[in-house]
Computed example of a mutant assay.
Amino acid sequence: MRPLRWLRLAMGACLAVSIPALAQYADLDRADWKEDTAPPPPEYSSRGLIEIEMPRSASVKMGVDPKTIAINHATGIVRYVVVARGPSAVNASYEGIRCATGEYKVYARQTEGNPWSPSGEDDWKPMRGQSGVVVSHPYRLARDGICIGTGVRQTVDDMVRELRSGNRSLYY
């Protein structure tokens, strides 16, 4: 078989496999999309966090607790707890990402030793602003393993493996 024909066949096979996987999320930005009720924030630990690469921030370390990552395939939302550790405080945030629309949402916040407080933010926000500026940690989580393009990875194990590997999604 000639190399060009082989390349066309391989590209066609990849396209045939990827379209159905992404199509299941393609309509999640419809006007009739409804978010499910977010479960309460899960328990988390500051041990075993997957570090989030944060440029420009030497004093604050951020990480996601892999045991808190939860996927709702029906809505396309991935929820998780991210922990920020600084020289004088440890704070946590319970958040969600919608890969289909490139948005994130903060459900609740917690300062060390205190109960969770609702964020008071009801709207989904873009991870990329109009000028291309990104909201650092949700964008990095989406790019580094939660999302695959505009789709959600199929399992939490897949997400954790990708987050730990440092690979980058081609679409974010």
Rank of each mutant, 00 (worst) to 15 (best):
P40E: 10
P42V: 14
S45G: 12
S45N: 08
G48Y: 05
G48R: 10
L49I: 13
I50G: 02
I50H: 03
P55E: 10
R56P: 00
S57V: 09
A58G: 14
A58D: 12
A58C: 06
M62K: 04
G63K: 10
V64T: 09
D65K: 07
P66H: 14
P66A: 13
T68P: 02
I69D: 09
N72P: 00
V78P: 04
V81M: 03
V82P: 00
V83W: 06
V83R: 00
V83K: 03
A84E: 11
A84L: 08
G86T: 00
P87Q: 12
S88T: 15
A89M: 07
V90D: 02
V90A: 07
N91P: 01
S93I: 01
S93H: 00
G96V: 05
G96W: 01
I97W: 07
R98F: 02
C99G: 05
A100M: 04
T101R: 02
Y104R: 09
V106K: 13
Y107G: 01
A108V: 09
T111S: 14
T111L: 05
E112D: 13
G113F: 07
N114H: 12
P115T: 14
S119Y: 00
G120V: 04
E121K: 15
W124R: 08
R128L: 13
R128Y: 03
R128A: 11
G129Q: 14
G132R: 02
V133R: 13
